[in-house]
Simulated scan of single mutants.
Amino acid sequence: MPLATVSDWRAAARRRLPRFAFDYLEGGAEDGRAMARNESAFGRIGFVPRSLVDVANVDMTATLYGQQLAMPVAVGPTGLNGLYRPQAEEKLARAAGRAGLPFVLSTASTSRIESVRAAACGPLWLQLYVQNDRRIAERWMAKARSCGFSVLLITVDTPVAGTRDHYRRNGFTLPLRWTPRLLLDIARHPRWCLSTGVHGMPQMVNLADCSEQRADITTQAATMAQEMNRSLTWTDLAWLRRHWNGPVVVKGIGCVDDARLARQYGADGIVLSNHGGRQLEDAPTAIELLAAVVDAVGGSMPVLMDGGIRRGSAVAKAVALGASGVLLGRAPLYGLAAGDEAGAEEVLAILRRELEVTLRLLGRPVLRELGRSDVTRI
Rank of each mutant, 00 (worst) to 15 (best):
P2H: 03
L3C: 04
V6P: 04
V6T: 14
S7Q: 15
D8H: 13
R10P: 05
R10I: 01
A13D: 10
R16F: 07
L17C: 12
R19Y: 06
F20C: 08
F22W: 12
A29P: 05
G32A: 03
R33Y: 09
E39I: 00
F42K: 02
G46P: 11
S51H: 14
L52N: 06
V53H: 11
V58W: 09
D59C: 06
M60P: 07
M60R: 14
A62S: 15
Y65N: 09
Q67L: 12
Q67K: 09
L69K: 00
M71V: 00
P72Y: 00
G76L: 02
G79T: 03
G79L: 05
K91L: 14
R98E: 15
R98F: 10
F103N: 02
S109P: 07
A120S: 15
P123L: 06
Q131L: 07
R134M: 13
R135T: 13
A137C: 08
E138W: 13
M141I: 07
R145K: 15
C147V: 02
F149N: 05
V151Q: 11
L153Q: 14
T155W: 12
R168N: 11
R169M: 06
N170Q: 12
L174R: 04
W178A: 12
W178Q: 08
T179E: 15
R181S: 14
D185H: 11
D185A: 04
I186R: 01
A187S: 15
H189L: 09
P190K: 10
R191Y: 03
W192G: 05
G197D: 11
G197K: 09
M201I: 08
M204K: 01
D209T: 11
D216I: 08
D216S: 09
D216L: 05
T219R: 14
A225G: 08
Q226D: 15
Q226E: 15
Q226I: 00
T235R: 14
D236Y: 02
A238E: 15
A238M: 05
L240G: 02
R241W: 02
V249W: 06
V249G: 03
I253R: 00
C255F: 01
D257L: 02
A259G: 15
A259S: 13
R260D: 04
R260I: 14
L261I: 00
A262Q: 04
R263M: 10
G266D: 13
A267K: 02
D268A: 03
I270C: 06
G276W: 08
R278C: 12
R278F: 13
L280V: 15
E281H: 07
D282C: 08
A283V: 04
P284W: 08
P284G: 08
E288K: 00
L290W: 07
L290Y: 08
A296D: 10
M301K: 03
P302Q: 04
V303M: 02
D306F: 07
G308L: 05
L328M: 05
L328P: 03
G329H: 05
A331Q: 09
P332W: 01
L333K: 01
D340M: 01
E341G: 07
E346C: 11
V347Q: 09
E356L: 02
T358W: 09
R360S: 03
R360M: 13
L370T: 04
D374Q: 10
I378C: 14
